[in-house]
Design a protein around this nucleic acid. Sequence first.
DNA 1: TTGAAAGCGGTACCAA
DNA 2: TTGGTACCGCTTTCAA
Lengths: 337, 337
Amino acid sequence: MAASSRPTIHEVAKAAGVSISSVSRALNGNTSNPEMVARVKAAVKQVGYVPSAVAQSLKTQQTGQVAFAMEDIGNAAYLAMVREIQPLLREDGYRLLLHATGADVQDEIEVLESLAQKYVDGLILCPIRVTDRHLAALRSPAVPVVVIGQLPEEADVDNVRTDSRQGARLAVEHLYAAGARRIAFINGPADTVPGRLRHAGYQDGLHACGLEVDDSLVEFGGFQVSAGREAAQRLLARTQPDAVFAANDLIALGAMHAIRSAGRSIPEEIQVVGMDDTTLAETSFPPLTSVSLGSRDRGRLAADMLLARLHGETGPARRATVAPSLTVRESTREAAA
Amino acid sequence: MAASSRPTIHEVAKAAGVSISSVSRALNGNTSNPEMVARVKAAVKQVGYVPSAVAQSLKTQQTGQVAFAMEDIGNAAYLAMVREIQPLLREDGYRLLLHATGADVQDEIEVLESLAQKYVDGLILCPIRVTDRHLAALRSPAVPVVVIGQLPEEADVDNVRTDSRQGARLAVEHLYAAGARRIAFINGPADTVPGRLRHAGYQDGLHACGLEVDDSLVEFGGFQVSAGREAAQRLLARTQPDAVFAANDLIALGAMHAIRSAGRSIPEEIQVVGMDDTTLAETSFPPLTSVSLGSRDRGRLAADMLLARLHGETGPARRATVAPSLTVRESTREAAA
DNA sequence: TTGAAAGCGGTACCAA
DNA sequence: TTGGTACCGCTTTCAA
């Protein structure tokens, strides 16, 4: 079991026959006497000394830790971000803390407010909703914060975003070009920022293509596979679309199940486009055409921004935008020439 | 931007006109004078005080943090564990630190050795390989450690494991019961512990069913979708199986693509079983029968064990084993009665 | 160059 | 009950 108490700098000093100041200096490279360094290093090895991260933190006022807070690490988009962020932080010697808030606004705010405890040096936050309390907490955070997602113009916070509205429009335009005319939309919850933006982009796309907005072609639900399946079932029971744009890949997957169960072929009878371009899209059958919102890029940019602040960068809040792009696979037909 | 310095307990004491000891007591519920509590709370609010986690850690010798180290959070099995572990830790007030070691043995050992820095109160480790250095570092860790995975008998470490060999056998027996006689096996790399165990289990299953071992039915590759597809292509070009057991769900997915591309139907002509029972299995087409190795259960058990230690449990190393189980879906036929 | 000592921001013991 | 004070383990200033 765990040994109860590890040697401290005092043990090293005693073993080396020097003061603790000298030990500290030798270990941190703040001495020019090589003999001293050698003695200290030997003593360190002898007693098996490892500096206490906590004591160092208290003195230096830095924890060497950064937190990443999102709704659910099971969401492929966040997962992609984590996989991008962690190595970057690590390269700089930072450890990564994970907060899964479970879409609970209260939790998100607690994370934000707990920053004052100074257990991390910075935070990357992916809020699903942005409330006034978010903005208040964001006004003067105890440590640098980077937000991934939409933020009101007036918020003075480092921010990485994508244009999911534009992305939704891309999907619709692609389907139109591929011959679809009755393009259905299966959305997530209507009361979320992503939900609203995607819906707006869907309508943008219809307008751009000269198609009528038909509410009977729109369904709402959750962002999961099961929700997608159920929404598609309701949709197919009611009307006859020749294409489905789903607000994310999970919904698209569920919709494809429902479509097949209803005896319709993909893409011959009904084309399908997803969003987020997760690994699910490549591995599904048929492989799913999907709008990429650049999760990896967003993760990388957010990490870069945060590291810049941690390295002492000052100045006004920065903002970066990642453009959406379309990855065409077999769930949609080639665009007509 | 971040305010430079937050109020400390001294500011609170001054504002409340009491000593810092009283503030500490009032805040930690070690006082019975309600008036004092009220005064202190008011002062806390007035100056906007939040205790420093670092200072508390230094004094209490507890960080309130636990680390989880695995190869890659992108791996669905580890992801499932994280999703199980995080809420459990959180319930107990622990924050979760994530170490993705990228299958680098050196990194794993560094994580283990860095425990002496005491930046966490405990660790859950999923090693890919267990070397002597692992075992040495595990001999007297600075904090409690739970290992998820196979460990030598003599290792005195809390340990959660599964029996993937038995799991592979289950898959083969299921396929046999469903009528398959030429059961192919697409494995991952042969030189890994999981690879070896699954192969052994595959052979166990064949023996148990009275089937001949036929090496022309076995393929090796990576643990990814693309590797699964390629291996299946080689297999189908060479021989004619009526079932494929894949060493994980990703391989199975790739194999299903290849099988369909070759014009064979699933499960009518070729049945497919995967392993790990990830969410991919439910969402694939057709939904994939898969052997669950109980990732979620293993995560939960590991968290429980660690929390028990953190709560002061002493005594010899514990060991738990999660039995594999089969989740039958549409990629295999019902067993004949 | 080296050592003594003053903190970093808390907790908890001890005496009043 | 309350306040004074000694730490927790380290870094860094300041004299010697």
